[in-house]
Design a protein around this nucleic acid. Structure first.
Length: 267
DNA sequence: CTAATCACCTGAAGGC
DNA sequence: TGCCTTCAGGTGATTA
């Protein structure tokens, strides 16, 4: 479900309500949804800051950290005091605060809340965030040059840079007129630069639109995003390309549904 | 190293 | 109505 812009929206929303809140207890209704990798007591720890790296949310506590990945259908729902109204069958973890309630709702049970001591170590396999200032054009080009993977799998892997998912990868490749099967290390300098700029523009625009809601995504207040109204290829199979009028194609590629314009994105 | 497939889960949608 | 298949904003392990 959520990619970088959606997780960023969740982080921004949580910062309004969660900072300085103190944890009373955490109750995992579905045990796999909460992974405790750290012996430190959670009770009475204060949420000091909320960060994001790629699609991971990071709640920094007084002594340890909660790292959250929403995967496909995860949602964080916040209720001030105890006015929780949607305690449905899909609530997997209850994070009870002294002044509120944070519910982790997740239909497909893929999402996780990890309790960890060392975030850097825990996320050592994840590349820097796509919008991190240290990911500049030269860093991006250097990453591209290290891999012969196709560009779609490269962007989805999270290893080189993190935060791009299926939607924004398809959109960024279309905007850059790059075929998904192109090898990362074979992109021309010009195409690589285009991709870098389009990727950032598309991610930032979606953040301004509070993310994209296809079906499940909601922010902590239950709001939908509106960025789905601006897709150029995702979910537009059979519809005319907005540039050249050719029908947008959908194929299975890199294990995912992949949308592209066969004319604008020739191999 | 890359690429493909399965596994983890549930629900919605389409075909018959 | 119901059964069966396929698909879904993700990722990690395993196998070629």
């Amino acid at each position: 479900m959520p990619e970088l812009p959606e997780v960023e929206t969740v982080a921004n929303e949580l910062r309004r309500s969660l900072l300085k809140s103190k944890i009373e207890y955490i109750d995992a209704l579905w045990s796999k949804s909460f992974e405790n990798n750290c012996d430190i007591e959670l009770k009475d720890q204060v949420i000091n800051s909320i960060d994001r790296r790629g699609k991971y949310l990071i709640l920094k506590l007084s002594l340890s950290n909660l790292v959250i990945h929403l995967r496909m259908t995860g949602q964080l729902l916040y209720f001030e005091n105890e006015t929780a109204t949607d305690f449905d069958d899909y609530i997997r973890v209850i994070i009870k605060l002294y002044d509120g309630l944070l519910l982790f709702r997740d239909v497909r049970k893929f999402g996780r809340i990890y309790h960890v001591q060392n975030v850097e170590k825990f996320l050592s396999h994840v590349g820097p965030d796509a919008l991190d200032e240290k990911v500049d054009l030269s860093f991006f080009q250097k990453q591209l040059s290290t891999s012969s993977m196709n560009i779609k799998a490269f962007l989805l892997s999270q290893r080189f840079i993190s935060g791009m998912g299926n939607i924004y990868t398809d959109e960024a490749l279309f905007a850059s007129r790059i075929n998904p099967s192109k090898a990362a290390n074979k992109l021309t300098k010009k195409r690589a630069e285009n991709l870098f700029l389009n990727m950032r523009t598309i991610l930032k625009a979606s953040i301004r639109n509070m993310g994209s809601t296809i079906s499940d995504y909601r922010d902590p207040a239950g709001n939908r995003g509106t960025n789905q109204y601006y897709f150029n290829v995702y979910g537009r199979e059979g519809l005319p390309c907005k540039i050249c009028n050719t029908n947008i194609k959908k194929i299975k590629f890199a294990g995912r549904g992949t949308h592209y314009c066969p004319k604008c994105q020739r191999i």
